[in-house]
């Protein structure tokens, strides 16, 4: 592993305090590097998706609070489950001005497509901005209110029970496989493009269940069309306090989606320090904190070595999961 700036001993709280301190204007003698031209902010997904919205939201926080003298330009590279973005950032011509917003495809795509030769341990850890959560959703008209009823109904329908998700071997597919194994179900997984579309298929009764992120189903939930019946989180989510965790139900399964800013491989130490401080400030801003509450996002800001260790751990977990579902040769 490459030597990173010693941030590993700094706790999360200290980073936030540090970030907040710089917002207040305390001078920082170390970080003198500043972007010299517009920063390319690569998005591993298409325009309008959850990741894209988050990037444009961060872009607006940067602009609104004048956190950078140079603009951050979002560039969408959605091709090949993020393969296109990974290849682009891996061989970025100017690593000091290239950062990327990533999801769990940051681990799964290099595992599934070894041909693209992406080694995530070469990338520069900037900051994990949040972890998105997953819940199991059904349509309200189905009358299902708990997992027991869900299992009964899904068993009765067998392979005619449709679980809509966001693409083969995606996060949704992993969770569907887990449910099928854990409860002895035969739900059929039907992939759609994007979480919003998946949410709509459930609300329009073209699917029987989904494993959407809260932000994707929130509108339909508030309109009384869909309900969450269980959460893939360690503790219940404040927004959906009636939905128990799978842990409570005796199935120890927790799954998150990272929302993390990654720097190009070969980024200089000074530039990495700059971006880490910048995104710590964004994380601590009222705007981002409000966004996290509203979207029911979890997770603290982590960076440097801690973030790298988190990646490597998650990569190992995903490798096992993908092997189990037969997606890896």
């Amino acid at each position: 592993m490459k030597p990173f700036i010693k941030l590993s001993t700094i706790t999360l709280g200290a980073i936030i305090a540090f970030g907040a301190g710089t917002i207040a204007g305390s001078p920082d003698a170390r970080a003198e590097w500043k972007p010299k031209k517009p920063v390319e902010f690569i998005v591993m997904a298409g325009k309008g998706g959850g990741a894209d919205k988050a990037v444009r939201f961060m872009q607006s926080i940067i602009a609104k609070n004048k956190l950078s003298s140079k603009p951050f330009t979002p560039i969408n590279k959605p091709g090949g489950s993020g393969a296109e973005a990974l290849i682009y950032v891996k061989s970025a011509r100017d690593p000091n001005h290239t950062i990327m917003f990533t999801l769990n495809s940051f681990y799964t795509t290099p595992l599934r497509q070894p041909k693209i030769k992406v080694d995530i341990s070469k990338f520069t850890p900037i900051g994990r901005m949040a972890e998105d959560t997953f819940l199991l959703w059904v349509h309200k008209d189905s009358g299902i209110t708990n997992v027991k009823q869900f299992v009964k109904a899904a068993k009765a329908k067998g392979s005619a029970w449709i679980m809509a998700g966001t693409g083969k071997n995606s996060e949704d597919n992993l969770l569907t496989d887990f449910l099928n194994k854990a409860y002895g179900l035969k739900m059929k997984y039907v992939p759609y493009k994007g979480g919003g579309r998946v949410a709509k298929e459930l609300a329009g009764k073209n699917a029987d269940s989904t494993v959407n992120n809260p932000s994707e189903q929130l509108g339909f939930y508030q309109a009384g069309k869909t309900v969450p019946i269980a959460a893939f989180t360690p503790a219940r989510l404040p927004l959906f306090a009636n939905a128990p965790t799978f842990k409570e139900l005796g199935k120890d399964f927790v799954y998150f989606m990272q929302r993390t800013v990654v720097g190009a491989p070969g980024m200089s130490k000074e530039a990495a320090t700059y971006y880490r401080q910048l995104f710590a400030k964004i994380y601590a801003s009222d705007g981002w904190q409000g966004y996290m509450t509203k979207k029911s996002l979890q997770g603290g800001f982590i960076t440097g070595d801690i973030l790298m260790r988190y990646w490597l751990k998650e990569k190992a977990i995903h490798k096992v999961m993908l092997q189990k579902m037969g997606a890896l040769k």
């Binding site: 309008g48 919205k53 939201f57 919003g196 709509k200 929130l218 509108g219 339909f220 508030q222």
Partner: peptide
Amino acid sequence: LGIPGSPTTAILLGGMVIWGLEPGP
């Protein structure tokens, strides 16, 4: 529905989130 019918509305949707509005039913 909070679902874009075209690429442009997808960006408008992102805009609504930035302005602090929640599109949906």
